[in-house]
């Protein structure tokens, strides 16, 4: 028994030392680029990072999520080399540099079974503030409206509120969701629900047969095409932010992410590349 204990201890010790040495030697060879922030941009940044790594063998790109606000504060505090923010910078964030890599739009979605085909801005505001509570008031079935909104702090919510001139305290939702997929699942499962999600995600899910439809806004159809030509009113830029002018691999990465070389990756995530 005693011998076995000693052997086990030795193996553990050797393993630990070996692991430690390995990471040590890796650190000296490989440059690490840390990106944190918006969970909207993170999957795209991770894909771009993979391609970037394959072109630069000595670089490791580490992408962490935590929301646009974290991306901004991490970039400012120097905790991340590059922050990711899926919104335009606020006035008190203008000390940072921004690089737009792609565009994303937000679409209001209904269940496909809902006969309503369009809502104007005021109707959407009235629905979200609880002034209109039945679909028949906007020409639909006699059924109570299920209002789906997003959790506080999400950039989709911020953009939605900003566009409609609402405060979150005014919104009277029946369901609050986290991410886009949960929103689409909720609207698919409830024929009387109204929600809002990213245009790219909604267009893709609708094309895959999800029972949702995208409502036009101000007469402009919610489509990737209209986000690209910036005619769709409810859209947002996906930004990389840095505290100082990026240098070294950070500069290479930002330039790479804005080059046509990654357009296919941006489109694969149902975002819209910025015209070059």
């Amino acid at each position: 028994m005693k011998k076995l204990g000693i052997v086990v201890t030795l193996i553990v010790l050797i393993g630990a030392v070996w692991g430690f040495l390995r990471t040590k030697s890796d650190d000296t060879k490989i440059e690490k680029l840390v990106l944190t922030g918006s969970s909207t941009i993170a999957p795209l940044a991770a894909e771009i990072g993979k391609r970037f790594e394959s072109l630069h063998s000595n670089v490791q790109v580490d992408v962490q999520t935590g929301g646009s606000s974290r991306g901004v504060s991490d970039a400012r505090a120097g905790l991340a080399d590059i922050g990711m923010a899926s919104r335009a910078l606020k006035d008190d964030e203008k000390d940072l540099l921004k690089f737009t890599v792609a565009l994303d739009g937000i679409s209001v979605i209904l269940n496909k079974a809902n006969p309503v085909v369009a809502l104007n801005k005021q109707q959407i505001i009235d629905i979200y503030t609880g002034k209109i509570i039945n679909w028949k008031e906007v020409g639909g079935n006699d059924a109570p409206i299920t209002v789906v909104s997003k959790a506080e702090g999400r950039s989709t919510l911020e953009l939605f509120l900003h566009y409609f001139g609402l405060k979150n305290t005014d919104v009277k939702p029946q369901v609050i969701i986290g991410d886009n997929q949960q929103g689409i699942k909720t609207v698919v499962g409830n024929p009387d629900a109204i929600g809002y999600v990213s245009v790219g995600t909604a267009e893709y899910e609708a094309s895959q047969g999800a029972a949702i439809k995208l409502l036009p806004l101000e007469g402009i159809a919610a489509s990737v095409e209209n986000v690209r030509n910036r005619s769709f009113p409810l859209s947002r830029p996906l930004n990389l932010v840095t505290r100082v002018e990026p240098a070294g691999i950070a500069k290479d990465f930002v330039e790479f992410a804005r080059s046509p070389q990654v357009n296919d990756l941006i489109e694969a995530q149902y975002f819209v590349p910025v015209p070059h």
């Binding site: 935590g66 929301g67 606000s69 959790a151 702090g153 986290g178």
Partner: peptide, 18 residues
């Protein structure tokens, strides 16, 4: 009626809270 539990609250908002 829909409700939000304490745990759901943390999970929903933590990622985006500052």
């Amino acid at each position: 009626d829909p409700v939000r539990t304490l745990t759901a609250n943390i999970a929903l908002e933590m990622a985006y809270a500052t």
